[in-house]
Amino acid sequence: MKIRYIVYIAIALIIGYLVYNKLHGDNKKNSTEQGGGGGKNTKGGKKGGPVPVMVQIVKDTVINTTIDITGTIDPNERVNLISQTAGNITAINFTEGARVTKGQVLVKVYDQDLQATLKQNEYQITLAKQNEFRNRTLLEKEAVSRQEYETSLSEYNTLRAQADVTRAQIARTIIRAPFSGIIGLRNVSPGGYLSPSTSIATLVSTNPMKVTFNIPERYRSLVKNGSKITFNTAGSRKNFTAIVYAIDPAIDPASRTVNVRARAANPNNEITAGGFAKINLILEKSPRTIMVPTQCVVPDLKSSKVFIARNDTAYAVNVKTDNRTDTQIEVTEGLKIGDSIIISGIIQMRPKVPLKIVKVLH
């Protein structure tokens, strides 16, 4: 009896499953057929309708080709002051960190022995000159031989040359500023012994300053004497300008770069020597250039193309491109001023596709 009830229950479950599957299967099929038909109709509607797009009117654009590089800042002139002679320092005539002028006496070295030698030479020159004059007079009267006269003349000239040597030695005991500038910290003291290997101080000329930097080889033809650069330093938020005045004629074979040097005015000493310069270099300015959004340009096997809108219809135009920025690309051929270039819906664009212009950018 119990087995019979189990069989009845199993048969009922099977029949219920078949009925449920029949009813829901038919509904799903009908829904699919209806959905498929609707999809075809919708697809057909999209295919035949205009594509909504935004367009941009092509116009002239000023484009600057710039690169950001780093450089070093150097003084216009810099020299390590040393003496050409040895001796005790008798005077120091400058203040550390002060401005000095060209020709100003900075240090004086003992020269009393040289002064005495010069005075002795001058006495000997006076006597030799008198002797030369006397022998010249006697030679005219044929009272002395020409050999005697030439001997006295040679003695006179020799003493004059010795005096010139002594004067040169005395001049070397005076250290002067070779140019106007700011003198640094001194390394000597009054009374100390100064030798040619001793550094006295460093003299720098800080106005103007030199900015030296390297540019890639491919930009060499775009940089010329007179080119303007803008830079700033870590010690100041101010932007400074400099003018290129020298370009190395050779390319560094290791880095493939060219050394360039510019001169920056520094009347207020705002630029510090030895610092780094963050440089913005304008390489080229094209006043009549067509720039379009990068996404507008569709690459092709042989060229690139863009789509323009004309009479609410899309047309493909082959173009040639050149410089790029982060968001734009330069078009050198294929477009003209006033064209309406399509900037949205590019993936749906095909030649002769009908358009619905929703926005125009100028």
Rank of each mutant, 00 (worst) to 15 (best):
Thr173Ser: 10
Asn268Lys: 10
Arg167Gly: 04
Pro178His: 02
Ile247Lys: 07
Thr272Ile: 15
Cys296Gln: 08
Gln130Glu: 15
Gly36Tyr: 13
Ile92Ala: 05
Ile182Glu: 05
Gly275Thr: 10
Ala242Phe: 14
Ile357Leu: 03
Gln348Tyr: 14
Thr198Leu: 03
Gln112Asp: 15
Ala201Cys: 09
Lys108Glu: 14
Phe94Lys: 03
Ile14Thr: 04
Asn41Arg: 15
Lys59Thr: 10
Ala265Lys: 11
Gly181Val: 07
Asn121Arg: 11
Lys285Leu: 04
Ala309Glu: 06
Arg146Pro: 08
Gly345Pro: 07
Gly49Pro: 02
Gln162Asp: 13
Leu18Arg: 09
Gly181Trp: 03
Lys336Asn: 13
Arg256Lys: 08
Asp164Phe: 07
Ser221Cys: 04
Thr230Gln: 09
Gln120Ile: 00
Ile229Pro: 05
Thr289Asn: 13
Lys129Phe: 04
Leu18Asn: 08
Phe94Asn: 00
Leu281Val: 01
Pro253Asn: 10
Pro267Ser: 10
Thr65Met: 12
Gly87Ile: 01
Pro287Tyr: 12
Tyr5Gln: 00
Phe276Ile: 14
Lys336Gln: 10
His362Trp: 09
Val144Tyr: 01
Ile69Asn: 00
Arg78Met: 09
Ala265Gln: 15
Tyr315His: 13
Ala273Ile: 03
Met209Gln: 09
Thr332Asn: 06
Gly334Gln: 01
Arg186Met: 02
Leu185Cys: 05
Ser199Lys: 05
Val260Leu: 15
Val53Pro: 00
Pro287Glu: 14
Val317Met: 06
Leu118Asp: 00
Ile170Gly: 06
Asn318Thr: 15
Gly181His: 01
Ile251Met: 07
Thr61Lys: 15
Glu333Ala: 02
Thr32Gln: 10
Tyr193Cys: 02
Ile89Val: 14
Thr137Asn: 15
Leu159Pro: 02
Phe231Arg: 04
Asn311Ser: 08
Ser180Ile: 06
Thr198Asn: 01
Ala234Cys: 05
Ala277Val: 00
Thr166Asn: 06
Gln162Met: 07
Leu185Ala: 14
Gln130Met: 15
Arg136Tyr: 09
Ser221Asn: 13
Asn76Ser: 09
Ala163Tyr: 08
Ala177Tyr: 06
Ile15Glu: 01
Ala316Pro: 08
Val358Ala: 06
Gln328Ala: 11
Asp111Trp: 02
Gln84Leu: 10
Glu140Cys: 04
Tyr245Ile: 04
Val292Cys: 03
Thr332Arg: 03
Thr85Lys: 13
Asn121Gln: 13
Arg288Val: 11
Gly48Asp: 14
Lys29Thr: 12
Gly48Trp: 08
Leu138Ser: 10
Pro267Gly: 09
Gly191Tyr: 01
Leu335Gly: 06
Asp113Cys: 04
Arg172His: 03
Gln115Val: 05
Ala168Gln: 05
Ile346Pro: 00
Leu203His: 00
Phe94Ala: 05
Asn88Phe: 12
Asn268Ala: 06
Leu355Cys: 00
Cys296Lys: 01
Ile342Trp: 08
Tyr5Lys: 12
